[in-house]
């Protein structure tokens, strides 16, 4: 096998690792939020609309680590179209590392922002009138807790494009 196709092997491995590992954390977090929302609806059935809204907005934000992992996976999948002319063993390591970085980097932030979303749903279930400040606090907290996955994204994009 020539070097060009060996590099592609590593790119595809990286793509698989990236979205495969990166989906675990956000999936767990989103599920946790949904389960807490179910409990909150049991407690306050008449507030189910605002609980649902909090849950959906929070889940859309907790998905963004998975979106970062998917972005890197797509870049790696279509690496075949813009491979450099001369490739070496360093390129293989870089592509695999980019995938692993994005995948493992979104494990923690996914779970973390899901936990924040779950607590917000629980809070709306206790006092539906506090929906607006809870939603705001949850959004800011989730955004800050996702900083770490943003750092992972920065490093994988550096590995993919800069070097």
């Amino acid at each position: 096998m020539d070097t060009q196709s060996l590099v592609l092997v590593y790119a595809y491995l990286g793509a698989g690792f990236s979205i495969g590992l990166g989906a675990i954390g956000p999936a767990y977090g989103i599920g946790l939020a949904a389960s807490k929302a179910c409990q909150a609806v049991t407690r306050q059935p008449h507030a189910s609309g605002s609980i649902m809204k909090t849950m959906l907005v929070g889940q859309a934000v907790s998905e963004s680590p998975a979106i970062f992992a998917l972005l890197i996976a797509i870049f790696l999948t279509f690496k075949i179209y813009n491979l450099p002319d001369e490739v070496s063993i360093i390129h293989m390591a870089m592509l695999l590392a980019a995938g692993l970085c994005a995948g493992l980097g979104s494990l923690g932030p996914g779970v973390g922002s899901g936990v924040a979303n779950a607590s917000a749903c629980e809070g709306v279930g206790r006092d539906p009138e506090l929906e607006a400040p809870l939603l705001r606090t949850m959004l800011i907290g989730q955004a800050v807790s996702q900083s770490t996955s943003v750092y992972a994204l920065v490093i994988s994009m550096c590995l993919l494009f800069v070097i």
Partner: peptide, 12 residues
């Protein structure tokens, strides 16, 4: 993190 969050989400 502030600038890359917006960039990553929109590009993704």
């Amino acid at each position: 993190s502030h600038s890359f969050r917006l960039y990553g989400n929109i590009l993704g």
